[in-house]
Simulated assay, not measured.
Amino acid sequence: FASVVTAAGFSPNAHDPALFVHLSARGRTLLLLYVDDMIITGDDSEYIAFVKARLNEQFLMSDLGPLCYFLGIVVSSTSDGFSISQEKYIQDILARAALSDERTPMELNVNLRASDGELLSDPTRYRHLVGSLVYLAVTRPDISYPVHILSQFVSAPTSVHYSHLHVLRYLRGTISHRLFFPRSSSLQLQAYSDATWASDPSDRCSLSAYCAFLGGSLISWKTKKQTAVSRSSAEAELRAMALLTAEVTWLRWLLEDFGVSVTTPTTLLFDSTGAIDIARDPMKHELTKHIGVDASYVRAAMQDHVIALQYVPSELQLADFFTKARTRAHHRFHLSKLSVVDPP
């Protein structure tokens, strides 16, 4: 397939192997491919028609028209913007369960360990459910943290781990939630990063999290356990900072490929003054040689005007949502900030 696309004039993208780009005097055309499903969009309607004709000559294809469904993700368009959701996918997950509704996806102050409870005699159901939740998190940032926790135990799940599939009951009560992208959103990139120090009760590793916005649209988020133990909260925050810097660098490259000019540094917001000081001051790297690579990487990105570090109070740190379970009030607050909404 790639040879047919390139013969039609597309060039493979250097930053995403599933993306192909074509430039002409009439504009830019993008083709996103996943196995035998694709999205074609762009400014050059004549070229898009030409590509469809060429592909139809080589493959048995169906043109589904304007984008409304892709890989189980429903795309809806209104005068105000676009939204993506997986409501049917959630219904499939819950079809075999009789569950009550819940207002939050995970209970507060839960510290699960691999040794908790008795091993399940058949772990298949747990693995299937968690695997489904991992894919569902593509459009549901509100379940990112609990899915991260539950996925750590798929190799040997226990009765305790299974009993904490609280997120399924939450999904039943929020099945229509969707991620909204307003048309009025600017094309200014901004991102938040946070970390919880020594939060894993088994090995004391910290948790990194970030979320990135294009204007008012949430376009990227992640919850990830750090691979090394941090000796202070500032070190944990700095590792999270480096993780986000890499993501923002990639997003800037991708936006340029989409034809969006990114000329100013991307603002990264943190609630750790210690981590910001370490990243900005090379003299302090001597005190943190064991994390010197992360510190130098972030500082180099600052010097190249790729990022600009900025302090944000903890109560306004949106990435905090991806590091721990929240109360019902805090959960609703973060949903509004992340543009996770119900349909009108």
Rank of each mutant, 00 (worst) to 15 (best):
Q152C: 05
H334L: 14
V306Y: 01
Y69G: 10
Q226V: 10
L207R: 03
P182C: 07
K324G: 01
R328W: 04
V229C: 08
D92P: 05
R103T: 15
Q86I: 05
S230E: 12
N13Y: 01
P282C: 07
S232H: 01
G292Y: 02
L287T: 10
D271H: 03
R96F: 10
A301K: 09
V248H: 09
Q303V: 07
F258D: 05
M241Q: 11
L33Q: 00
I48R: 10
A275P: 14
D44L: 05
G72E: 13
H290W: 08
L108F: 02
H128M: 00
S232F: 08
L32I: 04
N56A: 15
S11N: 09
A18E: 10
Q58G: 03
E107D: 13
L269I: 00
F70V: 09
A98M: 08
V4P: 08
Q152K: 14
D36S: 08
V154S: 14
R113G: 04
A212L: 00
S45H: 11
L150R: 00
A279E: 05
D101A: 09
L189R: 01
A156D: 01
N109F: 05
V248F: 00
R113H: 05
P182E: 01
T263Q: 13
A14Q: 14
A295E: 11
H285Y: 06
Y192V: 06
E237N: 11
L251G: 02
V74K: 14
A2N: 11
L64V: 04
S83N: 09
S261F: 04
A301P: 01
I48Y: 02
K88F: 07
P344F: 13
E102L: 14
L71F: 03
L60M: 10
Q190E: 13
L287F: 14
Y297A: 11
A53M: 11
H128S: 15
G216R: 05
L32A: 13
L335T: 05
A325K: 01
F153L: 03
D200E: 08
N111W: 04
D271I: 03
L64Q: 12
I90F: 08
H148S: 11
S151H: 00
S185N: 05
S144L: 08
D277N: 07
K289E: 15
V134S: 01
G81E: 06
V340M: 14
G259F: 04
K224D: 07
A95V: 10
D304L: 07
L99C: 06
T139V: 09
S220F: 02
T139A: 13
Q91H: 11
S206H: 04
S45A: 13
A300N: 15
F258Q: 04
I291T: 15
A242D: 09
D122Y: 07
A156I: 00
K88R: 14
S121A: 09
V167K: 00
C205K: 15
